[in-house]
């Protein structure tokens, strides 16, 4: 049973149509990644779901809720650049937000202490937020989003601003959150999506151009990929190869080349024979399966 159903969602700013009719569902207890380039409409979509922006057209309905009602208690939202009351301490802010979400004072205190521990800023709980680093603010942002145990947690680019350690920790945190709620997060880092999410929505120019689970993508774009790295310009060696029937496409970039095919066995042989015959100056030869990044490039090019 889907938690959220979005139908024909549109948003225009003046004459500019930013979101052009989205249709999707968010299943209960699943993690969904909203992927798209900068300006694809990810933030606008999340803001409409959170109620901060009003859709120009279309419907957003929550399971078991009245259409057009106030869904805010079901939602936890972390904006891309969270801003807090700088004069408050982290603990004060969490308790404040907890009480605003309807927790009794005692509960709000307990839950704040628990979350400060969970996101790893318990040491700084009595410091003014104005003195926090970007990473600490991001963690506090996640804590405030989940304080009232919402059914839908929406995070706008939660890891983009973090260093590798912070990124790792937040991704692990997302794994934990998945057990309690539906998670929807936007990102342009495809690896992160691949790591934590089952389902993916590709957003491009305000439209969903592809959606599905990671397995479905592998099935659909079940090409194999052969990566070659030469010690010279790659293009001079691959002229004859590009005419081969079994090869779908070749991408070249300086000394590197990626060859896509659905018939790995045949192409592999051809390449190896050619390489031996023409004495290619190969530095690397690798067979890999297609990654989300490749799918992304493919669907965007379509």
């Amino acid at each position: 049973m889907p938690l959220v159903t979005v139908e024909n969602l549109e948003k225009s700013f003046k004459d500019l149509r930013v979101i052009k009719g989205l249709n999707f569902q968010l299943e209960n207890g699943k993690c969904v990644a909203l992927i798209g380039a900068n300006g694809a409409g990810k933030t606008t979509t999340l803001k409409m779901l959170s109620g901060l922006l009003r859709p120009t057209k279309g419907k957003i309905s929550f399971a078991g809720e009245k259409q057009g009602g106030d869904h805010r208690r079901l939602i936890g939202y972390l904006p891309q650049h969270p801003v807090f009351h700088d004069w408050m301490t982290a603990r004060e802010f969490l308790e404040y937000v907890g009480k605003l979400s309807g927790l009794p004072t005692k509960k709000a205190k307990e839950r704040s202490a628990e979350l400060l521990e969970l996101v790893g800023i318990a040491d700084a709980k009595n410091r003014r937020i104005g003195k926090f680093s970007g990473g600490m603010k991001q963690r506090l942002g996640i804590a405030q989003a989940i304080i009232h145990r919402p059914k839908l947690i929406m995070l706008d680019e939660p890891v983009s601003a973090l260093d590798p350690f912070g990124r790792r920790e937040v991704l692990e945190l997302l794994e934990k959150l998945k057990k309690e709620a539906t998670v929807l997060f936007s990102t342009h880092i495809l690896n992160d999506a691949e790591e934590v999410c089952e389902s993916i929505l590709f957003l491009h120019n305000g439209e969903i151009i592809e959606s599905g689970t990671m397995d479905e993508f592998r099935e659909k774009y079940h090409q194999s990929k052969i990566d070659l790295v030469f010690s010279q310009e790659a293009s001079s060696f691959l002229k004859t190869l590009s005419k081969h029937q079994q090869i779908d496409s070749i991408q070249m970039e300086g000394n590197k080349a990626s060859i896509y095919t659905e018939n790995l066995k045949a192409v592999k042989e051809v390449i190896l024979t050619l390489a031996a015959k023409e004495n290619w100056p190969l530095n690397k030869y690798e067979i890999g399966s297609i990654s989300l990044e490749d799918v992304f490039m493919k669907v965007v090019q379509k």
């Binding site: 805010r72 904006p79 801003v83 605003l100 405030q144």
Partner: peptide
């Protein structure tokens, strides 16, 4: 303007 209202009003306030 600062954006803190977004954080507060996304709660059931």
């Amino acid at each position: 303007k600062s954006g803190v209202a977004q954080l507060i009003l996304v709660k059931p306030v």
